[in-house]
Write a protein that binds this DNA or RNA. Sequence first.
DNA 1: CGACTTTTTCCTGTTACGGTAAATAACGGG
DNA 2: CCCGTTATTTACCGTAACAGGAAAAAGTCG
Lengths: 195, 195
Amino acid sequence: MALGDAILACLTERPMTGYELAKTFDSSIGFFWKADHQQIYRELSKLRDRGYIQGREVVQTGKPNKLVYTLTPEGRTALRHWAARPSTPASTKDDLLVRLHALDSIDIEPLRTDLMARLEHHRDRHANYERILKKRFPDGTAEGRLDLGNLLLLRLGARHEQMVADFCEEALDALSSMSGKAAVVPIEDGKREKG
Amino acid sequence: MALGDAILACLTERPMTGYELAKTFDSSIGFFWKADHQQIYRELSKLRDRGYIQGREVVQTGKPNKLVYTLTPEGRTALRHWAARPSTPASTKDDLLVRLHALDSIDIEPLRTDLMARLEHHRDRHANYERILKKRFPDGTAEGRLDLGNLLLLRLGARHEQMVADFCEEALDALSSMSGKAAVVPIEDGKREKG
DNA sequence: CGACTTTTTCCTGTTACGGTAAATAACGGG
DNA sequence: CCCGTTATTTACCGTAACAGGAAAAAGTCG
């Protein structure tokens, strides 16, 4: 359980519904942890079964009733236990890197377009991080512990995106130096998978 | 299928047995993609079923016979098709980041030890990358396309590890500034999970 | 009315991860 | 001669994660 712990971590801030959590996993914590609403609802059920969170139904008018989940003391303890265990360094698992590993067996043109898309993507994210940093931490310091964590996270995210963007640029540069060689036969046969 | 493609990518270099692949996934490609021998053997069966690779039994004396897998033309095509699709940027999913996100609800001492362990880990990896870079690319340039890919990968890896190591240091610094505050109650209750 | 938002739930898959273990066959140490 | 190690493959167990399609229920907005 790691997604479960990520959810518990979110709920330390404030009680939330599955819907709100799904949105959270689309922005703040979602910068480094992706999960769609399905996964979140399923995980919420498990957490509730284990007694780590408690659902309280809030009757709404004009909208469907919602289930606000709150951390139970057991949930807090479980999170602290989990956080006290050594973390396991995750491996990157980026498709793009696998492609580079087999660079001489693949077509360069699609790779180039992919690299350009990725460059843009990582630049966007970098700009986004910087924007949030300027808004939330104009003077670059945090007072509370919670703020400190998020400041560190934002800085790491910003640097990471910057670095990957630079990498894409560099790769594009290097590829254009050898663009002529080995054009190979483009994909022409019929049985392509998934478009 | 992404592990499958990683395996295909490895087999473009040379035919290999599952055992060799497992070792490869422990070093070179394993720097950004982890997989144990179980996963690899299972994936090899699937790839063989799909006709992407072909196994050739090599009778050995003194050792069990081995199955050398070679890419079939279909496998090469499949790999190229896969590589021609846009890559999906992977999310980080590092436990450590989740912990920082809930920094004010967890105990700092174990976090600090964890950060120190991670600092060492990433420094080691950085040193390793640099070592390989110096050995394989003493002048910092690549001639072939395959070499170019691996040079880029190594550089990215080195920078990444450097960056994360710096991050750990920074986090440790920031934590020591607020070490006194909020020591909270250490974990004392009986029901710890996994040690 | 239809489209959209909010909110939750269920379904069916595949892919991945994790551990434990065994069979086979030689080599080397004590 | 037993034991451990290396090399090599395979099996079974379970859970966690990911992907995608769908639907229900209640209201608002155009």
